[in-house]
């Protein structure tokens, strides 16, 4: 509470690109031919695309929802399919998705279209056989198949991998007036403590040797866990303090980030390099410049 008056309040965002759906909605609003209702229909379509990037809701039910005719929904859908990226988005299935991609690539040759429409499951197989089936030279079939292999069957997949992760920072570096404060964000971690009620049991003679041994082991394990949890906390704080010192200008917004050598951190903190690597793994730090993976600061 002491710090409240001088603390700057701001929202923190992950330093990453928007999600696929956000990206599509932004694109949708740039399409000039759509009016307000069309935009609402378009957003509805986009937000209801499945994980693969396909539209699975019948156009009729969308039309009903917006009280318009089905053609109008179809018009919006075509605008999305033809103009928004990634190509193939909002198709009904993998076949339609690939056909859309071919059209948008401006492919004139009918062979790739034919292969997708009739022989999609066989594209990866024997081109000589396909050539005989289609009565076309094998070379042509081969190059059409090569082209088809460059297409994606599930347009949302490529995006999914780079979707901004839902990030919970482990470490927070806050700017308070002229100095930085480092603390842990253990929002999810409950306070855990040693429960000594059972300890007396160990030393009573009511238990068998085996039971006593088990309790001893548990006691040991509990101590060790609590100690390791404490060491984890203090090492993360030390890493945070180290960063405040070493990338001060970056944190102040006065310079680009120059990553620090892990060896230097290890040396300064007096722990092995491998320990630092463990400490960085999968953790994020919230700074006045955004939320970053902790590993971004090191090289």
């Amino acid at each position: 509470p002491v710090y409240l008056p001088s603390k700057e309040y701001r929202e923190y965002h992950t330093v990453d690109k928007p999600s696929l759906k956000e990206h599509l909605v932004m694109g949708l609003h740039l399409l000039e031919e759509l009016d307000e209702t069309d935009l609402a229909i378009g957003e509805y379509i986009i937000y209801n695309l499945d994980d693969r990037g396909f539209i699975t809701i019948p156009l009729e039910s969308i039309a009903k929802r917006f009280n318009v005719d089905t053609e109008r929904v179809g018009k919006v859908l075509i605008a999305i399919q033809e103009e928004l990226d990634p190509p193939g988005i909002a198709a009904r299935n993998a076949m339609e998705c690939m056909l859309i991609q071919l059209r948008r690539m401006g492919v004139k040759d009918d062979l790739p279209y034919l292969l997708v429409e009739r022989y999609l499951p066989m594209i990866g197989s024997d081109t000589a056989f396909l050539a005989r089936l289609l009565n076309r030279p094998e070379e042509e079939v081969k190059s059409a198949c090569t082209l088809l292999h460059k297409l994606t069957a599930f347009p949302a997949k490529a995006w999914q991998e780079s979707d901004p992760p839902s990030v919970l920072p482990d470490l927070i570096i806050d700017k308070l007036d002229d100095r930085f404060e480092v603390y842990l964000n253990e929002a999810m971690i409950p306070k855990i403590r040693y429960f000594k009620e059972y300890e007396t049991l160990i030393y009573k003679n009511e238990l068998s040797e085996e039971e006593q041994k088990l309790l001893e082991t548990m006691k040991q394990e509990a101590f060790e866990f609590l100690r390791n949890l404490d060491r984890r906390r203090s090492l993360l704080i030390e890493v945070g303090n180290f960063l405040v010192e070493r990338v001060h200008q970056f944190l102040c917004g006065e310079a680009d980030l120059t990553p620090v050598m892990i060896e230097e951190a290890a040396h300064t903190l007096g722990v092995p390099v491998s320990t630092i690597l463990y400490a960085l793994r999968g953790k994020y730090v919230q700074t006045p410049r955004g939320i970053f993976p902790l590993s971004k600061f090191f090289t």
């Binding site: 971690i189 855990i192 059972y198 300890e199 866990f225 984890r232 463990y278």
Partner: peptide, 30 residues
Amino acid sequence: GFLEILAKSQVELLDVIEQLVETNLFLEIA
């Protein structure tokens, strides 16, 4: 061990804590 706990994200750590609290008589959520 220590390194194992150090390497865990909060979500992973929460799993470990939940398991331990259930199986270890000497640990409890405060």
